[in-house]
């Protein structure tokens, strides 16, 4: 028999058991439960339905629900595994697991590839890379002439597109990242090592006796 307190808890739509998610990801059960606290906080911040909508994701990232950003859009789309416009708890945990310090480099490399493969063609195309560079410059209020942007993109392409077919494929991407490991820095969130202390309120609500 569970305690009376736990029976009063209502879960968000599409909730999945922490034990199931822990088995599939780099997180422990306790960490998944801590992530649930974070998930609830974000998913009830604007539209109170227990699902993370784009504007809630933007609010959590930028403290501004109206801030459009190509990179945040891409991350949101990859987290939204079912492609139904919202992030459910299971999607949130599975996606964040890629950013766990203990997750394999290969998984991180593959995720980063998908992030930059804007049109999901299976390649990072020159136009996509240019679009990403322009988005970054715009976001940073920087202006560079088109020539300079082309030069940066061409230079990078010369290094990454080793078979010179005009596109970067997953194998070339992997080789390129191995030579430039700093590119993967954004794929690891040290916070994820210590989420149970980051969200201690979980301790009060825990349903699991550990």
């Amino acid at each position: 028999m569970g305690c009376w307190f736990s029976k009063q808890l209502e879960h968000t739509p599409g909730y999945e058991e922490p034990a199931v998610l822990a088995a599939e990801t780099a997180f422990t059960v306790g960490e998944v439960e801590a992530l649930y606290e974070l998930f609830k906080k974000i998913s009830y911040s604007i539209i109170k339905d227990g699902l993370i909508h784009k504007e809630e994701f933007q609010l959590a990232l930028f403290k501004n629900s109206k801030k459009h950003n190509l990179f945040a859009d891409r991350v949101f789309d990859l987290f939204d595994i079912k492609r139904n416009g919202v992030i459910e708890f299971g999607e949130f945990v599975r996606s964040l697991s890629v950013f766990h310090p203990n997750t394999s480099q290969d998984e991180k490399i593959a995720f980063a590839f998908r992030l930059y493969d804007l049109r999901s063609t299976g390649f990072i195309e020159r136009e996509e890379l240019k679009e990403l560079v322009l988005a970054l410059l715009h976001e940073s209020d920087l202006y560079l002439s088109d020539d300079i942007v082309d030069m940066i993109v061409d230079q990078t392409y010369k290094l990454a597109d080793t078979n010179s077919d005009g596109k970067i494929d997953p194998i070339e991407w992997k080789e390129f990242v191995k030579k430039n490991p700093s590119l993967l820095k954004i794929m690891t969130l040290p916070y994820l090592m210590d989420i149970t202390t980051a969200f201690p309120s979980f301790i009060m609500n825990s349903e699991v006796d550990e």
Binding site: L61, A72, L115, Y116, V133, L136, S140, I195
Partner: peptide, 25 residues
């Protein structure tokens, strides 16, 4: 010359990719 830095290096500085802010209280 910083203008010719690796394009991926450049875009990895985007705020939109810094998921750490999700964890800020």
């Amino acid at each position: 010359r910083p203008a010719l830095m690796n394009a991926f290096e450049l875009i990895s500085t985007s705020q939109g990719l810094n998921l750490g802010t999700l964890f800020e209280k």
